[in-house]
């Protein structure tokens, strides 16, 4: 099957998905029953002004009309303005996505590469003290809450040692580097434990397969067996695991962004939930759903690249 027709067909599937997502968030918003008008007006709200604000926000329209407004915004990418801050939502997202990516993307890349390399290494030493020590270390690292890493690293390396900025962010390369370096290191450390354990399991699953025995019987070195045969065959679960994380990189990381004052998207959705800022919640949910679908398509295509047996249907 032509790859383009596959991509187009899969992307068309996003239409019913988006309609469904719109319906779900619309139902949840209406079921939650919080009155955004009251939240906006705060402590001095009066019944009359609440009614006026509800009308101004379009909350007095028939439900079906409100639903189609959501659908329209999903397909035009015009999400309007935040109810809480009156800011243009697409601008907010555009401005926040870049700082989030300058933190999450390098951290993701570094932790993935290091985890795969280390998992190959421990697979090479499987069953030995090194393997066991690495697994114990991973479990240990996973047991420490991420907040503890953040508090300690920020205090020790940024404040005591003065090697990094304590917090803040500057736009443009290379200005942002001093600000994101420490959060990247922390994010790599936090991700390393679960990633390494997962990749190790995937590689060990393959390492006992018949084809590996055949390769060894043919006299191939362990390095060639691991890098050329095992790694290639382990790529499908690895790609699934890795690519599906990509859309979430744009969404940023709440804790790191909050502690290091990085102006990313990490806190945007959470704040919107607390403010009952429905247009922002709607935009973030719809865009996340779209990104998820797109990256699933990319994963499918990558399967065919790493494993010629896989065909797109």
């Amino acid at each position: 099957m032509n790859i383009w027709s596959y991509v187009i067909r899969r992307l068309l599937y996003t239409v019913p998905i988006i309609l469904g997502v719109c319906l779900i968030i619309f139902i949840i918003f209406n079921l939650s029953g919080y009155d955004p008008a009251q939240i906006l007006l705060g402590k001095h709200a009066t019944a009359k002004q609440i009614a006026e604000v509800r009308a101004e926000l379009g909350l007095d329209k028939p439900l079906i009309e409100q639903y189609f407004d959501i659908v329209k915004s999903a397909f035009t990418f015009d999400f309007g303005r935040s109810w809480a801050s009156k800011q243009d939502i697409i601008e907010m997202i555009k401005e926040g996505a870049v700082p989030s990516l300058t933190l999450t993307f390098p951290a993701f890349l570094i932790s993935t590469v290091i985890s795969i390399l280390l998992s190959l290494l421990v697979a090479f030493f499987r069953g030995t003290f090194i393997d066991k020590a690495v697994v114990v270390k991973c479990v240990g690292m996973m047991s420490i809450p991420s907040l503890a890493y953040i508090l300690f690293f920020q205090y020790f390396f940024a404040y005591e040692m003065g090697w990094f900025e304590i917090s803040g962010y500057e736009h443009g390369f290379p200005n942002f580097i001093p600000y994101v370096s420490l959060p990247i290191i922390i994010m790599v450390i936090i991700s390393l434990g679960p990633d390494l354990r997962y990749f190790r399991t995937v590689i060990l699953d393959d390492i006992y397969q018949d084809y590996v025995r055949t390769a060894r019987a043919k006299g191939l070195t362990e390095k060639v067996v691991l890098l050329k045969h095992v790694l290639k065959n382990s790529m499908i679960p690895i790609i699934t695991y890795v690519v599906i994380q990509l859309p979430f990189l744009i969404l940023g990381t709440l804790l790191l962004e909050s502690f290091f004052s990085i102006p990313g998207l990490g806190g945007l959705t959470v704040k919107a939930v607390f403010d009952n800022d429905f247009p922002v919640i709607k935009a973030m949910t719809i865009l996340s759903a779209m990104a998820y679908v797109i990256f699933t398509v990319i994963t499918d295509i990558l399967y065919t690249v790493v494993d010629p047996r896989v065909r797109l249907k």
């Binding site: 508090l151 920020q154 205090y155 404040y159 917090s167 502690f259 004052s261």
Partner: peptide, 18 residues
């Protein structure tokens, strides 16, 4: 003006004179 939501970085920045 710096927006620093968390107590620790606000405190550490103060102690550093920032």
């Amino acid at each position: 003006v710096q927006i620093i939501k968390e107590d620790q970085p606000r405190w550490l920045n103060f102690l550093k004179g920032k």
